[in-house]
Design a protein around this nucleic acid. Structure first.
Length: 574
DNA sequence: GCCGTTTTCGGCCCGACTGTTTTCAGTCG
């Protein structure tokens, strides 16, 4: 069983949890968590890095000790430090930390005082009212734990960005109508366009006497009020989505927006920069002693630490601060930069609308071109096209292009990549198209080696243009298939073909870190809607958000090209 | 455990709310 970065990260997280329960130095705990995060976001595999003999201590937050543990885990799959901790604390105890209201101190007390180290034991103790008598616990804490246990496992989890939007935007609009409210921004991971959000953070700028907080907790979708203070409240909506509201006065708007947009790691890094300059940065402003020197706008906060404005999508402490300092921030692609869409379906297969309707909707969006890319015959559930039906569609597109004004339809296909890497339609037919999108729709369970070879072989096909939804994951529903994405990116570079960033809210695939990897190799990414109806062009907004998280600029995105410039790029692969 | 234009020790981001407390620890974001 090969060890991947995520496996090492999981071990480091577990060590951090156990150390925390043990009462270890908080900074030591933080070092393990930082390392886990670095590993999860690393664009390459630690094993490969080790095999090349590269120095792991060059990674941020990795010193001799952690580098040694990474090597140990990569080579043996085990970690002596973790085994040692397990002799002192039962492994299952970290599960208790996931229960809201239980942190390391209380978990430690439960273990030492009542010998509780599993969720089941905790349930029994709650039932017998043995918790309330512990020092630092009380009746309220006990009943809060009881409630949390009742919903444990059925927890809300993370929400897809599009789902969060459906709740957050009406709520924000409702808050904007409250007297005394100046501004309402949905901040947090939502503003950073993360593919999923754990909760919604709303920042309200309002006069001190505004009734906005009362109106918030009285919102009719609120199922539960978790906390309710003058500047900060938290609620849970009926859909189990948690919403946190913060109210600040206008002079603090920028500092608060920066703070509540996060990410936490980015904020810590910015505050550290402030510290180096003798400044204190909090959600109320940037302070030199007691004097506020910035905070009304986000720009002023960045300026105070000597940086230009950093777009929210980049704020993950993944190099954006260094790039900003060096004047090398990317000029991120915007929705309006897209000149067309290279992946849509129509009624001919599993779409809802006709060719003409899709073309018209694209034209109304201001698009110059639209590639029609139906499924191929292997995907029977989607009524995939066989050669006869594809030829009919080619004729129909030619006919329609003769009539349409202001938009050009491109002839394409989303052809299945078969298990052995062959494509699901004859070469001769694929050669007649403007572009060929290859896609994996079956056998997600292949080994990493076989899945990678399958895709690489497909990409070697002379007519292959673009790899659809490269990881195959469905957010919160299906894990990505196991594949060596860096080899795929390398193949795209070698072959002069492209990768898709599928904008469907359930896919958002290519992942952001791989967008960066593709960009580094000069491989263009196409942000496509995968629309199955005229409404689905709205998905592009989420795709562009993901592209921005991946540091992509206009020039890095294939379909920002005007048609005249696009055609030769498509030809190159044919 | 990491790190260094404050460099091998002594720091490490900062504040709100809750509950159990009489001044604050724990948790959370």
């Amino acid at each position: 069983m090969p060890i991947h970065n995520a496996d090492i990260a999981a071990i480091f997280e577990e060590i951090a949890d156990l150390l925390e329960i043990e009462g270890a130095n908080v900074f030591r705990v933080r070092a393990y968590r930082n390392a886990a995060r670095t590993l999860q976001e690393l664009g390459r595999d630690v094993r490969t890095t080790l095999q090349k003999g590269e120095d792991l201590t060059a990674l941020p937050g990795i010193g001799d000790d952690l580098a040694g543990k990474m090597r140990e885990i990569a080579e043996t799959g085990r970690c002596a430090a973790l085994d040692k901790l397990h002799k002192k604390l039962p492994p299952a105890i970290t599960e208790l930390l996931k229960i809201p209201g239980l942190g390391p101190k209380r978990v430690k007390a439960l273990y030492h005082e009542l010998d509780i180290h599993t969720v089941e034991q905790l349930q029994r103790a709650v039932r017998d009212h043995r918790i309330r008598s512990l020092a630092g616990f009380g009746e309220k804490t006990e009943s809060r734990i009881a409630e949390a246990l009742a919903t444990h496992g059925g927890g809300a989890g993370r929400f897809k960005l599009v789902t969060a939007a459906q709740y957050a935007e009406p709520l924000a609009a409702w808050l904007r109508a409250v007297p005394g409210v100046d501004d309402v921004v949905v901040a947090g991971s939502y503003r950073r366009a993360r593919e999923t959000v754990g909760d919604i953070d709303i920042l309200v700028t309002a006069a001190a006497d505004s009734p906005v907080m009362q109106r918030f907790t009285a919102y009719d979708e609120v199922a539960e009020v978790l906390s309710h203070g003058p500047t900060r409240s938290s609620v849970v909506l009926g859909c189990r989505l948690q919403v946190d509201l913060r109210v600040v006065e206008p002079e603090s708007h920028g500092a608060a927006l920066h703070y509540f947009t996060g990410s936490r790691a980015h904020n810590i890094a910015i505050r550290r920069l402030g510290q180096e300059r003798g400044l204190k940065i909090n959600e109320y402003g940037v302070f030199e002693g007691n004097k506020r020197i910035a905070g009304e706008t986000e720009q002023s906060v960045f300026r105070a630490v000597g940086l230009p404005f950093i777009p929210p999508e980049l704020r993950e402490d993944r190099g954006e601060i260094e790039a900003a300092r060096a004047g090398r921030l990317p000029e991120l692609v915007e929705l309006g930069d897209l000149r067309g869409d290279l992946h849509v379906h129509t009624r001919a297969t599993d779409g809802h609308d006709s060719l003409r309707e899709m073309a018209e909707a694209a034209r109304q969006r201001g698009f110059e071109y639209l590639a029609i890319t139906e499924h191929s015959r292997r995907l029977t559930v989607a009524h995939g096209l066989d050669p006869v039906r594809l030829l009919q569609q080619i004729d129909e597109i030619d006919r329609l292009n003769g009539e349409l004004r202001g938009i050009t339809l491109l002839k394409g296909i989303e052809v299945d990549i078969l298990e052995d890497g062959r494509l699901d339609l004859p070469d001769e037919l694929l050669g007649r198209l403007d572009l060929v999108i290859g896609a994996v729709h079956s056998r997600f369970d292949l080994s990493r080696a076989r899945q990678t070879e399958r895709i690489l072989k497909a990409m070697d096909h002379p007519h292959f243009t673009l790899l659809a939804h490269p990881s195959g994951r469905l957010i919160e529903r299906r894990e990505p298939y196991d594949v060596d994405m860096l080899r795929i990116i390398g193949k795209a570079k070698e072959r002069g073909c492209y990768l898709e960033l599928n904008a469907h809210p359930e896919r958002l695939d290519l992942l952001d870190t791989y967008c960066q990897a593709a960009k580094a190799e000069g491989v263009l990414v196409s942000v496509n809607s995968d629309a199955h109806s005229v409404l689905d062009f709205d998905h592009l907004r989420f795709g562009v958000g993901q592209a921005r998280r991946g540091w992509l600029e206009k020039g890095d995105v294939l379909n920002t090209r005007p048609l005249a410039a696009l055609r030769p790029l498509l030809k190159r692969t044919m």
